[in-house]
Design a protein around this nucleic acid. Sequence first.
DNA 1: TACTGATCTATTTTT
DNA 2: TAGATCAGTA
Length: 674
Amino acid sequence: MSIVGGKLVNHLNRDQVAAVVHTEGPLMVLAGAGTGKTRVITYRAAYMIEQGIPPEQILGLTFTNKAAREMKQRIYTLVPRGKAEGLFLGTFHAFCASVLRRDIVLLGYGRNFSIADEVDQTGLLKQAMAECNISKDVVSPSLCLSLIGIAKGEKKHPSEVNIYDPALKVVFPELYKRYQQMLKNQNMLDFDDLLLLTVHLFEEHPGKLEACQERYRYIMVDEYQDTNYLQFLLLSYLAGSRRNICVVGDDDQSIYGWRGAKIDNILNFPDHFKGAKSLKLEQNYRSTTNILDASNSLISCNKGRHGKSLWSECDEGDKIRVVKSESDFEEASYVGDAIYDIQYTTSACFRDFAVLYRSNYQSRMFEESFRNARIPYVIVGGKSFYDRKEVRDAVAYLRLIVNEKDDQSLLRILSAPPRGLGDKAIDTLRRLQSITFAPMLDLMSSGDYLEQVSSKGAESSRKLIGCIRRWREVLTTGVDLGVNVMNYLREVEYLDGLQRMYKDREESEKRRENVLELVNAAHYYARREGASATLAGFLENYSLADDSDKVDDVAGSEDSVMLMTVHAAKGLEFKNVFIVGVEEKIFPNERALDAGSAEEERRLFYVGMTRAQKLLTLTWAKKRMRHGQLSQQTMSRFLREIPKDLVEGTESSKAFKKASYEAMERAFQNFNTN
DNA sequence: TACTGATCTATTTTT
DNA sequence: TAGATCAGTA
């Protein structure tokens, strides 16, 4: 029982050790916030390797690439050099993508499939609605998409999905079918398909499943509370009769129910895997006892929990600050002010602070305030680099190279930059496709098409297609990826086209830089992967990159306050945390309440609270602009659920005065001592 | 076809 | 408030 010479017990507490050494048979570890969940997973992997289990037999599944990356790094430091080689540690989606890249041909798709993102999905669905003659006034595309997601996540036939809207109920199965057909025609998979088709593959080709079972004999799953039915199914298939499956999670931190996560998976694990050992980790190493007690008492308002109570050897610490402001504006300036104030008293860096909110739009007020106060900040999530229009356009050009059936991408680039191909050309393509079912890219070089568009359109079509075909030869080799991507984008007239698309000089330059940033990413990717680099591989990386991946890009390099949603903050910790907008209808979110997710909102708030190590501040404002209108706000129910004796209440205007008074006093003292 | 300005409307979280 | 969409014009 040793890890790199030392005894396990020197690194871990009793419960953690128990989890690490239980390697055979099903195991559930209920790990509260900050109880060393990652430590257990990484030590467990290291321990197994040390026990002589070949690393390639270990499969670790996470929800984010970041979590996977961090665990991998930690495992590598725990075992002797080279000993962890071959271990698979990645997201569910990445794992499924890798399985499908090998065998998806068996399901009638091409191995060069593209992965549809939300924009592609919406485009596809809108087109499906148009073809089925369904007006978007009757059915909202976004609702429909989320229902499709739920249907897939629960592996349900479209007619089995619970739909309250009678109009949608009637057309849903048809829409679903059409949408799915369009995806397949374009050789595209949406995120849910990655999981669903892997399950199909295993069901229809048992040999493929057996091969996987044979290879991956030990399975570990992080954040098990966020798995949906498909993921559960996948896991139970993979675990097979060996049942060497270890899941780690926290039912109190299940915050993705709206995306189909089934908290029941973790609540019922002992039933699903009979004879499973179950362990609880309750010693928290992160927060002060005040923060823990407050969090515990908030979460205890929920029903249907495994029931856990976190404790800590840390001291009491400061009380929770609850700050009332007159307005959203005042709230934002208070937070800025408080950051400076806390910096003075605790010598904290900017990166020791996080401002957490329920919804992305809430960031704006704080951005302005921080800019004025000269506080460096980083916004995590929201409209990220990859979501920028010019980046997406550039990616569409690349996707078309890899997957010639990708009509979504073709439609995107047709008028970016404008090249005389507009509605007319698109109509023609659609019409032709409804007859021939050929990819639009092919149709564009057909005589029928060229005859029907203007001579200018025909000319630029020929040019565009020629260019794409030429570069396909070059780019699919994967050689000099960065350079070639750059030259392709130039030759296809995208880079220079930016100037025509954005006539404001400054703006077009900015957008050009962003595209070059993407080129750069391709370059880095190519360097990292060496000989195995392919354009397809780069695009897959891009598609599966998640929001938390973008955290370290910036966080490591600069000393900045972090602004993000509570969802994005899961798994992170900060010395000082501000949860802002703690008001009814905002946190808990109004629509979530309507949807009956009050308990999930509470768990979300719990996640936010437990991010704090030292100081937790909860702020709310009496008035704020909502939908462009002034609205009177009331304090969130969550504030009432925290015991009064753990709280120190203030009003921001008073706190302001107090802070500035203290700052003056300090300055005065400094003046005297110097 | 492409661009402009006006109007509408929706604001939850995202692998 | 701002983004998305639409209708009308060059």
